[in-house]
Design a protein around this nucleic acid. Structure first.
Lengths: 123, 123
DNA sequence: AACGGATGTTTACAGCTGTAATCGGAGTGG
DNA sequence: CCACTCCGATTACAGCTGTAAACATCCGTT
């Protein structure tokens, strides 16, 4: 369950998560082409590696495969977030908030959203 | 200025940051030995790679080197934090807070600390 | 039946990582 | 002066990453 996904692989996962339905390799490539500048071969490599890692599964559809995520985005993102906060901030979120605040990486909207979340938590 | 530091290398940087003074390779190894189980050779490799990357600098002290960080921890941590939030949360911190909250990864102290920080920001 | 296109699989290859062993030069005790 | 030790530098090597080309196979068309 501890699937590590590289930056490039993540691009493919994001595409599948965003699609909300199984996609063929070609479809994935088309949707990624706009951002990154990958050849179809590269996308296929990513799909194979992700399948090998168990991050996605594929179902046969005649000649081709239909790929879909095998893990939920929330689960993956939550896992990575805990890892990150653990690694650099001793597992506490507040120092991260402090650091980003210090660097003016938080806008008013973001701050308000966080406050609302925390207020919710206390009730 | 965009120094990438791997997990293992980070262990060495943390040691130097924590030391607050230049250390020899042997000293670094001693201080790390408790956590990780690295040979002195491995620590030396890390020091060389970090020096090559410009993450640390060394000064000659007779026959050996005294190593010290070339970048400040706050700068590195801030950089990585922005990268991370950018990569998984579209650059906004609130969704990260939401995710961790959802997974009960925030304790009361942490929450209180964050609220205090944000309150400070608004004044 | 042969050919070309679509598709997954295999192979490629350089750079980074984790983890070290080994080499070569300098200083030290005898 | 010589063997030994300490230290940085060089070399090693497998696994992961980014990026892709080549290969094998099947399907539909000519």
């Amino acid at each position: 369950m501890d699937v590590r996904i590289s930056d490039a692989e993540l691009e493919v996962m994001e595409t599948l998560w965003a699609a909300g339905q199984p996609l063929t390799a070609t479809e994935v490539a088309e949707r990624i082409a706009s951002d990154r500048d990958w050849s179809l071969a590269t996308v296929k490599t990513m799909l194979s590696r992700l399948a090998a890692k168990g991050a996605l599964k594929h179902r046969e559809d005649g000649r081709r495969f239909l790929y879909s995520p095998a893990i939920r985005r929330e689960a993956y993102v939550g896992h990575e977030s805990r890892r990150f906060v653990e690694k650099l901030f001793g597992g506490r979120l507040s120092p991260l908030v402090a650091r980003l605040a210090e660097e003016d990486a938080l806008d008013q909207d973001d701050i308000a959203a966080i406050e609302a979340l925390l207020k919710e938590l206390k009730s």
